[in-house]
């Protein structure tokens, strides 16, 4: 599978801290260093709306399941729920003691979950008017870097070298010691494996049920950046940003480098978002984002 550059968007909002597809991949959200969030149609490079209200850098954002709300968190320690259509902040959730590094909705977008630099993960009830978190997960001993939420699990990575997943159904927390500070963690699409990228420039694939190491992917460089990684939509490739300005693609099973997508030479690619269903990829580097994909898929998307 080959990825080509389909669109390049200069977001004009300072450094793009994060880029995220929405739930169906039709839109994307970029979080800017200028305290703004922008909603785009990446396939047409169309700016749809700008959301201003954060007091500082926006570090992560997430669209709700019905795409009517955006959840965002930033350096101003707040988590904000935005109304997509009006652009107004609906709720501001204050409670974190330090910058909010990652935010996620649960599957039904009834709970906002935010991870922070203050070592906690907070679960906020969006349905009620309560301003107190439902639950605070204090297991991490260092900053939370990345988070994934499925319908019954919360997967977090932390700089304390651990990947934790909280199984709500079992009432169980599983800590997997990785040995290096973990910057990004993702479930594979089948939910059976965990992909964790660490600061030692190695991405590891673990079996979720046993915690055994299945594969390792290396070659790229992370340095001191929070480099994000991901699995493509068919679970065939592992994708990761790198300091050298390329998106590295590995074969999941063979662990050999399949492709290197040149984004912006010399500038690290720190954020990455994989389309939930189609072979598209968004990468963010500096102030611009790029949409990658196969042209045929793009055509299909347009037809659809």
């Amino acid at each position: 599978m080959k990825y080509d550059v389909l669109k390049t968007i200069d977001c004009k909002q300072g450094a793009v801290r994060a880029v995220r597809f929405n739930v169906d991949g039709a839109y994307c959200i970029t979080c800017g260093g200028d305290k703004k969030i922008k909603l785009w149609n990446p396939h047409t490079s169309l700016l749809l709306k700008t959301y201003g209200g954060h007091g500082s850098d926006v570090l992560d954002a997430c669209g709700s399941c019905d795409s009517s709300f955006i959840l965002s968190g930033g350096s101003d320690k707040t988590v904000i729920v935005w109304d997509v259509s009006t652009g107004q902040p609906i709720r501001r959730l204050r409670g974190h003691a330090s910058r909010v590094t990652c935010v996620r909705y649960n599957e039904e977008s009834t709970v906002a979950i935010s991870g922070s630099h203050d070592n906690t993960v907070m679960c906020w009830d969006i349905k009620s008017r309560s301003n107190e978190p439902i639950q605070v997960l204090r297991e991490a001993k260092d900053s939370i870097t990345y988070m994934q939420v499925t319908n019954e699990e919360i997967l977090t990575s932390s700089l304390d070298c651990n990947v934790r997943f909280y199984d709500i159904r079992k009432g169980q927390i599983t800590e997997d010691f990785v040995g290096e500070p973990v910057t990004c963690v993702n479930f594979t699409r089948d939910g059976q494996c965990i992909l964790a990228s660490a600061t030692d420039s190695v991405i590891r694939l673990f079996d979720k049920t046993s915690g055994e190491l299945l594969n390792e992917y290396s070659g790229h460089k992370t340095d001191d950046f929070y480099i994000e990684s991901g699995v493509n939509n068919t679970d065939s490739q592992v994708l990761s940003g790198s300091v050298d300005g390329c998106v590295w693609c590995w074969d999941l099973v063979q662990a050999n480098v399949v492709a290197k997508l040149q984004h912006d030479p010399g500038r690290p690619i720190h954020s990455l978002s994989v389309h939930p269903t189609a072979p598209f990829l968004l990468s963010a580097s500096g102030g611009s984002i790029k949409l990658w994909g196969t042209p045929s898929a793009e055509n299909e998307e347009e037809n659809a």
């Binding site: 649960n106 599957e107 039904e108 009834t110 709970v111 679960c123 009830d125 349905k127 439902i134 639950q135 297991e139 319908n151 019954e152 909280y166 199984d167 709500i168 159904r169 079992k170 009432g171 169980q172 927390i173 599983t174 800590e175 997997d176 010691f177 990785v178 040995g179 590891r204 673990f206 046993s210 915690g211 055994e212 190491l213």
Partner: peptide, 27 residues
């Protein structure tokens, strides 16, 4: 990696959290 690096502990999710996740309370 595996059992040596893995720690599994009991964890009590808040009942409201379970409710919002549409999961029966494991507690």
């Amino acid at each position: 990696f595996g059992p040596l690096t893995r720690v599994v502990r009991d964890w009590a999710p808040a009942s409201l959290l379970c409710k919002r996740f549409n999961i029966p309370d494991p507690n």
